[in-house]
Each structure stands twice: as C-alpha cells, then as structure tokens.
Simulated scan of single mutants.
Amino acid sequence: GDCNNGASNNPRGLTNFIQQSSLNVQVRSCDDSVCSGESWIDITDTSPQDLSLDNNTYFQYKVDFISPDTSVSPSLESVEINYDILNTAPVVEILFPLNGQLYLDGNFDLNFSVIDGEGNLDSCWYSLDSGVTNVSLGGCMNVTLDLADDSYSLVIYANDSLGLIASDSVGFYIDSTGVSVSIVEPTGKKSYRENIVLDFDVVGGVNCWYNVKTSIGGAVIENTTLVDCANSSFDVSSDGNYVLNLFANNSFGSFNLDSSNFSVDSSGGSVVIVNTPSGSGSGGSSSFTRASVVAKLEVENISVISLIGEERNLLASVKNVGKVSANKCNLVVSKGYERYVD
C-alpha cells in the first residue's frame, strides 16, 4: 500500500527495521603475555568501567556480540583504556656484615637479598664510602670482599626498570692486628706503699686505663686514664694483697686487658725515740733504735660443740689493738686440734 499519505503517486514502504544486538565484555590480568592459566572475568556491559584487578604485568579484554540475524554484523567502534602504573621500589637487606661489628679478617662474603614485588628489578651496586665510589654487582649476586684494616660504611643499592631506587646500609670495622697488653710491673712483693711503678707494653692501643682492687675484689683505685698509654705510678694506703687490671682499646673497637697480682708489706719497722735518764743527774740523753711495729689482734674465746660428722661454721670477733693495719690474717689452730679445723 501507499504509505505516503497521498503525498505523491510514488509508493513508499518500510524496507529496513532497527534490530537490537547485545555484547558481553570480559577482562583478565596476567603475569605472562599469553595469559596462561588466568580466567576471564565478566564486567557490567556499560561504559565507562572502573576495574579492580590483580596487579600483573599484562591486561586483556574481549567483547562477544550476539545479533538476532546473520545479516546483522555488529562492530566495536573504539576502546579506550586509562590506567595508573602500580610500582614499588625493590627491598634491599644486608645480611652480612652486621652493623657495628668488629671483624678480625677482611676477607669475607658480602651477603644480601633483593626483592622486587613487580618483578622488574634492573641492577644492583655497592659502595664502601657512603656512595662516593660505586661498584656494580652483576646480576645482583653476592660477592667476596677483601678489605684492609679500617672502618667502613657499606651501602647496597638496587633499582627497577621504572627508575625506583632502594638501599640498605651498615657500618663495621676490620682489625686483623688487634690490641695486645702485657704488664711488666707491679709483680711480687713490695715493701713500700707509695710510688709503686706501673710499667707495661701495649701494641695497637690508643686508649689505656687501669684500676687496682684488693685480692677479694674491693675497689682501691677506680678506673684511671693513662695519657698516651704511658707508664705511671700509684699509691696504696695499706699493706695487703692486690690485683692491678690494665685495659687498652683502639679506634676500631678492638679491646684487650692484662692483670697482675702483687702484695705490699711495709711492716719492716719504724724509728722511735727512747728517752733514757742519766745516772749523774745531768741532762738526759736520747738514743734512736729501730723497733718492729706489728699488728696486735685480740680474739674473743671461741667454743663449739660438734657432733661426729657434723660441719660447723665459726664466727670470730677480732679487734686490732696494734699500730698498723692488718689485712693478711691466718687462723692458727692449737696443737692437737689441727685435724678438726679446715
């Protein structure tokens, strides 16, 4: 029929109808270029779409068309993909040497690890002077170092293909020589308390100091610095048994010490004045004599009853009524009782 509503004698008719087709959009992210093992994920078939995908190197998408008639051939006019690159710097960790440590041998394996989450690690290098001089680490592999005695600041760097750089650092010391300490004096028995000579040999040390203790650990002279590690002398205030401890270290942190046992016994006597009256009544005359001065101890009586096989501890009260100090004392058991006292 005429669908021109009488506009002309030229008949017009409907020759085409709009037919609706459908499309299905799917995406996937992959860790390899052929997306082996990854599955497609359906998304809403509207544009635009904000996708949340696994952080992988590769991204694929596909569109499936469905039309009601084979004469209809749908087409995809355009696809635009916008994205932000998610990339983090590598992680570097120095495993050996350890920070702040002293080593006696400069030949050792440099041990470190590098991890890059995106798999785009590019190169590694190290420096022993805080980055002034850099040395490449081929393949980011561990190497062997052979270093002279010194202090070092080690930094290991790593970067990725997008230019992000990471590093780790440690400070350490090499001292293959170390420090040796040997006391020459004081040793043995001294008959004087003042100007006791401190004579010693130190190799490799830059700081030296000493202290003096009694034989049972009591402090006599606290830690005292020896300027330029030079010999010196010291005094003690009483007779007794002593221990001198000598210490030395160097700028690398190497440390050593030596100890010497000695005793002081100045009880050889003292000069006293004895006034002797004259028989004729004339003025008295004076003479000098050397009398032995010793400590005199008063000990309270000790009594104890001990059964057969029983062990008892005795506590004695002792008073020094002499004129000199006493710090070397021995218990003397009366004859016949020696086997009962240990």
Rank of each mutant, 00 (worst) to 15 (best):
L162E: 11
N87A: 00
N327D: 11
R193A: 05
S182N: 14
V72W: 01
Y242N: 04
T46H: 01
Y340G: 07
F262E: 02
K189D: 07
G217T: 07
S73W: 04
R312C: 01
G253K: 10
K189C: 00
S176G: 11
G1P: 03
N16K: 07
K62T: 08
L315W: 05
S136E: 12
L95I: 13
G217I: 07
S317C: 00
I156R: 05
G204M: 07
N330E: 08
A219D: 14
N99G: 11
G13F: 14
L53R: 03
C3E: 13
I41N: 07
L121N: 09
A295H: 08
C30F: 15
E311P: 00
I115A: 11
S251K: 13
S127G: 09
C140Q: 05
N250E: 12
L102W: 06
E185V: 01
N250C: 10
A291S: 15
C208I: 03
S71G: 07
P97F: 03
A291G: 15
Y210P: 01
E118D: 15
S270E: 14
V227D: 15
I273A: 12
E311V: 09
A219N: 12
N107T: 11
N87P: 00
V27D: 04
S238N: 12
N82K: 12
V79Q: 03
L102I: 10
V114A: 04
V181A: 07
Q101T: 11
T276Y: 08
S52T: 11
S71Y: 05
T289A: 12
A326V: 06
D239P: 06
T133R: 06
G217R: 09
S215T: 00
V206S: 15
E93H: 01
I18E: 12
N4C: 08
Y83T: 03
Y152F: 15
G188F: 08
L147T: 07
Q101I: 03
D342R: 03
S113P: 00
S36V: 10
Y242G: 04
S33D: 11
